[in-house]
Design a protein around this nucleic acid. Sequence first.
DNA 1: CGGGTTTGACCAGCGC
DNA 2: GCGCTGGTCAAACCCG
Length: 187
Amino acid sequence: MENFPYNSNPNPNNGDIYSSNFISTPENFDLSDYLFTGEGSGDDFWSQNEFVQSVSSSRGSYSNNPTPTSDHHDIKRTKGVKKYNKVEAKSRVAFRFISELEVLDDGFKWRKYGKKMVKNSPYPRNYYKCSSGGCNVKKRVERDNEDSSYVITTYEGIHNHESPFVPHYTHFPPNNIPTHGLHNLHL
DNA sequence: CGGGTTTGACCAGCGC
DNA sequence: GCGCTGGTCAAACCCG
């Protein structure tokens, strides 16, 4: 934890986003680079459109580049590879911040399960799963190929448990996260 | 020895 | 159909 200045816990199940220590080094973290994404089904916490509007309208450097991967989620699997179904949607949250370190210590335990070189980027993308049993939250970590001082971390899913390291804060409704938090905390 | 990391392989989706 | 790309698995490996 001491290697990373932010105690950011993006889990919408707790209120860390509103906690005073959510951002402890504002000079390194531009909240307008702090992205919320949802799935396209419209039934989610935040639809993709809501995300684009609420974030890109204020600045949104990634508004034209929302999390680019296919929005599918595991339902069943064949040999070695999961099959996906868009019907099952999960929330997704993306952060973009300046850091020399690529691993954001967010209070959860993550197990790395893959590393992949991605097109149009000299930097690999790393894949992590929450190592807590029964928790299917994943995150992807990659460097911004346009500005390697930035690290892009994308969380997918919602933890079904509390952070083992971060105290629980007051509950907040997920619907309140995006614009409200952005504007209140804008630097 | 248990848990995490590395890395090659596998598969699905997509564009052509 | 084919090739490319992204996401995941899992065996081997590493480390405390």
